[in-house]
Simulated assay, not measured.
Amino acid sequence: MKLHFKKTGSGEPLIILHGLFGSADNWYSIAKELEKQYTLYLVDQRNHGDSPHSDEWNYKVMAEDLNELMQDQNLDAAYLMGHSMGGKTVMNFALQYPEKVKKLIVADIAPRHYAVHHQSILEGLTSINLHEVKSRKEADDQLAKHVPEAGIRQFLLKSLGRNKEGEFIWKINLSVINDQIENVGEALDYDNSFENPTLFMGGANSKYIQEKDRADIDRYFPNNHLIYIKNAGHWLHAEQPQAVVDTVRAFLK
């Protein structure tokens, strides 16, 4: 699949993948800082952002999407960074194509299985009647019945777009995500390991990377470094962008 992406900056290539319900735009402020040293590829994963929709949605095909993008851009190897679902994608990619990954950064996700925990969000998104809502405010009001946190609603509604007729549409493939949400929590299952430097960057207030995850991290990524960003939860790049930028710069140097 030909993914939509934004390219900016100059220097060695750094590819960034967003998380579930997100898009490349989620990392734009981070990219504005990092583009001074690197050529950034901000990627919309399949069924998200401006990339194509597909009924097939799992880490095998998402890793192949990334491989196709690198081939199209004539990238023999690159630095890879992924958040949450994007972190699982780059982990899978690094284990399948280790020679194509110079260094790996995984933001607030571990190699293990995660139980489905997005029910209220999915219920809220599917409850919005796009044929009836006349404004984003109306969509937000409907979503608030299921998702009380204003910041999370603001993030989710970035995926609300309009078609050529001016009607509201979801840029995410909501039906496929809803039907196949279990796929996003899949654990890594490989016999090999990725030997190049790998940074696991967790939010100090998040529970996505726990002490029990160290065994899996060491197994698949033995040359790893685990740090936690202070005063940050799962969306650490939005909550503490400068700390994330500084950490990424230090690691890639």
Rank of each mutant, 00 (worst) to 15 (best):
V245K: 09
I105K: 01
H234W: 02
H131V: 02
L252R: 04
H113M: 08
V147K: 03
F5C: 05
I105M: 10
Y59K: 09
Y97V: 03
D50E: 14
I15D: 00
L130E: 07
G161S: 15
H4Q: 12
I181D: 03
Q210D: 09
L14S: 04
L40S: 05
N224Y: 07
A63N: 03
K7S: 09
L104V: 04
L156V: 02
E132Y: 13
A94C: 08
P197L: 02
Q210K: 15
E149W: 00
N47I: 01
F155E: 12
Y79S: 10
D72L: 06
F194N: 11
E239G: 10
I209R: 08
G166K: 06
I105T: 04
P241A: 12
G233D: 09
L125E: 09
P197R: 09
H113V: 10
N92T: 14
H234V: 01
Y97Q: 15
D246A: 14
R136N: 13
W27P: 00
S206H: 00
K88D: 05
G9W: 00
N173E: 09
Y59C: 07
K60M: 08
V61G: 05
E12H: 09
V106F: 02
Q119F: 15
K88E: 05
T39K: 02
V248A: 12
R214H: 13
M85D: 02
L42C: 10
V43A: 09
N205G: 10
L34G: 02
I172N: 13
M201H: 04
N231C: 03
G233L: 01
I121L: 10
K145E: 14
R136C: 01
A243M: 12
I229N: 08
E186P: 00
S10R: 05
N74D: 14
F168H: 07
D55A: 14
V184Y: 06
G49L: 10
I128E: 05
V133Y: 10
Q210C: 11
P13L: 04
R46M: 04
P197N: 07
V248C: 02
N47M: 08
N67A: 14
M85V: 03
G82M: 00
K145W: 08
E149A: 14
D50C: 08
Y114V: 01
L40K: 03
V61T: 15
G9P: 00
A24H: 14
K6A: 12
L156A: 10
V147Q: 06
L14P: 00
I121Q: 07
D179W: 00
P148W: 00
W27G: 02
A204W: 01
S51E: 01
A115M: 10
K100T: 04
L80H: 02
L104R: 05
Q180K: 15
Y41H: 05
L188I: 07
K253Y: 10
V245G: 11
L160E: 11
Q242R: 14
L104F: 04
I152W: 01
L252N: 08
